[in-house]
C-alpha cells in the first residue's frame, strides 16, 4: 500500500509536527509514503470566501499533481472535503473531470484512511490521560466521518476517553469567518471550550489543525486546563514515535 501525502497550508507552516506524526504512524504501520513537493494550497480559504474563478487553475493543478497516486491522505477533514466534495462544484476543464472523479474516491482524511482503507483499528500504545474528541464540521458533515477517530482513540488501552457535551458543535473557526466575524467566532469558541472544560479532559483531540488552533488559542489565553491534540499526535505519543 502506498499513499501520497496531502499537506494543507496550516500543516505545512504552523503544525508541521502533527503532519510529521501522521508520517511516522503511516511508516510505523508499514505503509509506503510519497511526498509531492510541488503541492501548494487546495484553495479552500478562497473558495469559502466566494472566489471560484480564481481557484479553478489551482484545483486543476492539484488534480494533475495527484492523478497518478493510489491513495492520498491528509491530516485535515476540511481540506479533504474541499477536494472530494467541493472541487466538483467548480468549472474544471472537461478533460480533467475523470481524474477528479477518481481523485475524489481515493483522497482520505487520516483517521478515515487508517480505519476504512488500511483497516488499522488497533494502534495500541499507552496514553494514560483523560481525553475528549471534537468533531470538526466538514469531517463530520461533508465526509460523514464520526466513528473512525473515536475507534482509534479507544484502541489505546489505558486512555480515559470521555464524550463532552455536544461534541459536534462548531468551534467557531470557519476559516476567514474567524476574522471577518471575529466577535461571533469568539462567542462560539468560548462555548465550545466550556464544554471541553466541563468534560474534565486534559486533552481535546481533533482531526483538523485549524479547529485545534482556534480551540487551543482560546484555552491558553483564558488559562483553561485542557490542551488541543491532533489525532496523529495522540497516536504518535501513544506509540512513542
Amino acid at each position: 500500500m502506498r499513499v501520497a501525502l496531502f499537506i494543507p497550508c496550516l500543516s505545512e507552516h504552523m503544525f508541521a509536527d502533527s503532519a510529521m506524526s501522521m508520517v511516522k504512524i503511516l511508516d510505523h504501520l508499514g505503509i509506503a509514503i510519497d511526498y509531492v513537493e510541488d503541492q501548494t494550497c487546495c484553495g479552500q480559504p478562497a473558495f469559502n470566501s466566494g472566489y471560484r474563478k480564481e481557484i479553478i487553475p489551482i484545483a486543476e493543478r492539484f488534480i494533475k499533481l495527484f492523478a497518478d497516486h493510489q491513495y492520498i491522505v491528509a491530516p485535515s477533514g476540511s481540506c479533504t472535503a474541499m477536494v472530494r466534495v467541493f472541487y466538483k462544484e467548480l468549472d474544471i476543464a472537461a478533460e480533467l473531470k475523470p481524474a477528479l472523479e477518481s481523485l475524489s474516491r481515493k483522497i482520505f482524511e487520516f483517521s478515515e484512511f487508517l480505519v476504512d482503507v488500511a483497516g488499522k483499528t488497533d494502534i495500541g500504545g499507552s496514553f494514560p490521560h483523560r481525553v475528549t474528541y471534537h468533531d470538526s464540521c466538514h469531517l463530520l458533515r461533508e465526509l460523514g466521518v464520526k466513528e473512525q477517530p473515536r475507534r482509534l482513540i479507544r484502541s489505546i488501552p489505558d486512555i480515559d476517553f470521555v464524550e463532552m457535551e455536544k461534541p459536534d458543535t462548531c468551534c467557531g473557526f470557519g476559516g476567514t469567518f474567524s476574522y471577518k466575524m471575529a466577535e461571533v467566532s469568539l462567542a462560539m469558541v468560548a462555548r465550545k471550550c466550556g464544554y471541553i472544560e466541563a468534560s474534565g479532559a486534559e486533552y481535546v483531540v481533533g482531526a483538523d489543525s485549524s479547529c485545534l488552533m482556534n480551540i487551543e488559542g482560546y484555552l491558553r489565553k483564558n488559562n483553561m486546563r485542557a490542551r488541543a491534540l491532533h489525532i496523529a499526535d495522540l497516536l504518535a505519543k501513544s506509540l512513542n514515535l
Partner: peptide
C-alpha cells in the same frame, strides 16, 4: 482579543 494564535513553524513540513 481572547485567543492566542499558534506561532508559525519556520522550519516547515517540507
Amino acid at each position: 482579543k481572547k485567543r492566542a494564535l499558534g506561532r508559525f513553524d519556520h522550519t516547515g513540513f517540507r
